[in-house]
């Protein structure tokens, strides 16, 4: 008898636990409702960006309601297809994306490109960085490049994604900028940034090409050293880390993350979304989230965004052509 009672209480407890509320705000908002389309699964980089931005907008009362739809598949191509084919009813939808959309349309993974969408704005950037283990013999980027020029096989550079991805293209651009032959670069691909970092710490590889944000935490713990970052100027989180430009190599690279609307989105709506994102930057809620995650603001709305994307496409496309990834 007693046992039955206990069981029932447990079922009740279960229901209560599941019902832990997800809070909603009801203040008067700038935009009533937005739907975020995320081309990858819960927990990934795209997911974190969309949910982070969504949360800042909700908490600051700028946005009334938000929903988040994860649609993984085809390296992001599935969600892109979906947004384009159902464009008419997707006027309240923002698709989150980042630099890989450019790479994947260049290699023809999916036939569409950012030109088939309505650019809203870029929101944040993560710069690329070259990282070594704390007891590495390398102290500066120049030493690595010097060794590379002597014997390209002696400097192997690891990264958290396949050949021809950002992690590969950035060191290739740097080597080319320094007058080396990027075709001679031995790039060691890992299937995730974390695993590539573990490879660096285990001595599997000597140099790692990764996102600045991903390396910052470990650099602060004195486990790794960041030798160079691909931003225009030194970053406030790590003022001691020189930029690639300072070594006399004209390479800058930002992995942007931003939002797109459906094709044919009325200009008024697109403008409203751009204004909404612009307002977000000044809210304490955003500053809090951005600082905690180590993001850099990068606001380039509308036409500015398109121009930026075209520039990046040119730079990446040139490198990919040189490495033989596209004809």
């Amino acid at each position: 008898m007693k046992r039955k009672w206990f069981g029932r209480m447990l079922v009740l407890l279960a229901v209560l636990c599941m019902a832990l509320p997800v809070n909603m705000s009801f203040a008067a908002a700038e935009v009533e409702e937005l739907h975020f389309l995320i081309p990858g699964g819960a927990g990934g980089g795209w997911d974190g960006t969309a949910r982070g931005v969504g949360k800042a907008l909700l908490d600051s009362g700028l946005l009334g309601q938000a929903s988040f739809e994860n649609m993984s598949g085809g390296g992001g191509g599935k969600a892109l297809n979906h947004l384009i084919s159902t464009a008419k009813r997707q006027q309240g939808t923002m698709l989150v994306n980042s630099t890989p959309i450019i790479i994947r349309s260049l290699t023809g993974v999916f036939p569409q490109s950012f030109r088939d969408l309505t650019p809203i704005s870029s929101v944040i950037a993560d710069y690329a960085a070259l990282v070594v283990a704390k007891d590495s013999k390398y102290q500066t980027l120049d030493q690595i490049l010097a060794d590379f020029k002597k014997d390209p096989r002696s400097v192997k550079i690891a990264g958290g994604s396949v050949r021809g991805s950002m992690d590969h293209l950035v060191p290739a651009m740097i080597i080319k900028g320094a007058g080396g032959d990027p075709l001679k670069l031995v790039y060691i691909p890992y299937d995730a940034g974390g695993k590539a970092m573990a490879g660096l710490l285990s001595g599997d590889t000597q140099v790692l090409s990764t996102g600045f944000g991903e390396a910052l935490g470990l650099a602060n713990q004195d486990m790794v050293r960041i030798l160079a970052v691909t931003s225009d100027e030194r970053l406030s989180q790590a003022p001691d880390v020189p930029t690639v430009k300072e070594s006399g190599i004209d390479v800058t690279f930002a992995n942007w993350r931003g939002f797109f609307g459906a094709p044919g989105l009325p200009e008024a709506k697109a403008q409203a979304y751009r204004a909404l994102l612009k307002k977000m930057y000044d809210t304490p809620e955003w500053v809090d989230i951005r600082n905690k995650r180590g993001w850099q603001d990068l606001y380039k709305p509308g036409a500015e965004f398109t121009a930026f994307l075209e520039d990046q496409e040119k730079a990446i496309g040139g490198m990919m052509r040189e490495l033989g990834f596209i004809q």
Binding site: G194, K195, M197, A198, L201, L218, Q221, D222, K292, R293
Partner: peptide
């Protein structure tokens, strides 16, 4: 070490960093 070995721990690393805690030897 502050290194995620699996999808789940990668998500948790994100949460830790969001709290302003840097996992690692220190």
């Amino acid at each position: 070490l502050g290194i995620p070995g699996s999808g789940t721990t990668a998500v948790m690393l994100g949460a830790l960093i969001a709290y302003g805690i840097e996992p690692g030897p220190r």
